[in-house]
Design a protein around this nucleic acid. Structure first.
Lengths: 245, 245
DNA sequence: CGGGGGCATTGATCTGGATCAAGGCGCGGG
DNA sequence: CCCGCGCCTTGATCCAGATCAATGCCCCCG
């Protein structure tokens, strides 16, 4: 699905400063709170890593020792019940920041969906940086607030929307996030499986599949392949997402 | 249900500094990031207000001009769909802080459930204070992170738990939050109606009512009156909340 | 003390989405 | 090129919780 990256998997340690300066994710991320001139300090504490699909980056309950910043690929964040039921609380793409936690342990797990490149920062070291760059702390608060708003939207979806409305909401959200890197207008790739979508929307795989088929047969969307979606009627789909029959 | 407050509804402006120093909520709140010696600065920008049951404190979509800090009573935060379906995203009690928002408008509404006393801070003025008290900014980040964790738990509840598990989770949560001010062990008051509980748990009033009746007949809880609950088997109820049949 | 309005409970029935059960299809490996 | 394994789709049936419908009960107000 993804062409293998042309970048080396393990970066030359001497080139680490460049890794941050040229990082694709920097513009979208916490890191832009650090001025160019000081980016070496950031690079010095960052460890760049690549994770294969299915690999766990963060495990719920583990000591929250690191922050993670995604620079390529997509991650699923989720929580499990003891019997294995799973709720995906969000998908994190390029620029996303994981690992905010007050408690000493992570409150959720995170797994690579496709091949993911990311930076790990020790929590302790980043905190010392934070004291020197108050803008970075402000940025973290902004990030947390944005996620809180998204979480509230998701609660509305999970508590009160029908399967049809959930899929419409999800597809609109993905199109907003994914469209920038895709050529044809309104078309995008879904990196996650039907099972992931189901666990994100609080539905079953079968309901997700059936509902997508229905939306296609009604002309709201095109589904050129299982992992590609094109939105044909964005306004109408947005209406559906908000409950207009 | 609540004895009328012995405090005056409108505080003497000259006593405002005392209002913060002696505030019941201060210990639980952002305000404790400001040292006692400087609490007058906080008091100077706070407006203490009382809201009657049902009053709107914050309206989704309005310009986010203020922060709010609850010092007595309980507030419901919620989002609506255009057709009136409501999802309550949380209940805020003493010490809770409302109004974090990146965007310029509020992402949710907030209404008083019972009589609520609260402080309003202008966002602009609080931001200038924030620059002088970095500890306060850290505290806000902590608050946002804590709420994010709660939101993730709620997504798991809404997406993957049964009605029975939702009620068990809710009652355990309320008992943790409410028990401190109540005399008999494990007993507490629910300030919100069955309709509020339903809209918080993504259920209907009828299902909430039936499920509470069932939990009572099975000996998990006592329901001395519609607004009072006593948990008789906390460990078993906690098990239920996590899906142990 | 009696009447009425709003919330809560309880009962009967219905249904959206879950569950159970086959196939289809694209892709990687031999 | 073909086979087999994982997803995905589609179909048939089931059921938890929604909806529809009384009735009960508390509390306020006259």
């Amino acid at each position: 699905m993804y062409a293998p990256s042309t970048r080396p998997v393990v970066l030359d340690p001497h080139g680490a400063a460049n890794a941050c300066t040229h990082c694709d994710a920097r513009a979208h991320s916490v890191c832009n709170a650090v001025p160019d001139s000081d980016v070496a300090r950031l690079a010095a504490i960052a460890v760049v890593t690549t994770a294969q699909p299915g690999t766990t980056l963060i495990q719920e309950g583990d000591p929250a020792s690191h922050f993670v910043n995604i620079s390529a690929g997509t991650v699923r964040m989720y929580k499990l019940l003891p019997d294995g039921r799973r709720q995906i609380t969000g998908f994190a793409g390029v620029g996303h920041f994981l690992g905010l936690a007050v408690s000493s342990t992570y409150a959720f797990s995170a797994e690579a969906i496709d091949t993911v490149r990311y930076c790990r920062f020790s929590r302790a070291r980043l905190h010392t940086l934070l004291d020197d760059y108050p803008a970075m702390e402000k940025r973290l608060l902004e990030i947390a607030s944005t996620e809180l708003v998204a979480a509230q939207d998701q609660m509305l979806l999970l508590g009160r929307k029908t399967a049809r409305e959930r899929l419409a909401s999800f597809l609109m959200l993905q199109s907003r996030q994914g469209v920038m890197c895709q050529s044809p207008r309104g078309r995008f790739v879904l990196p996650m499986s039907r099972g992931d979508i189901a666990d994100y929307l609080g539905l079953t795989i079968e309901t997700v599949s059936r509902t997508i088929t229905k939306l296609r047969s009604e002309g709201y969307i095109d589904v050129p392949s299982a992992t590609e979606i094109a939105i044909k009627a964005p306004a109408a789909l947005e209406g559906l997402a908000l409950g207009n029959a």
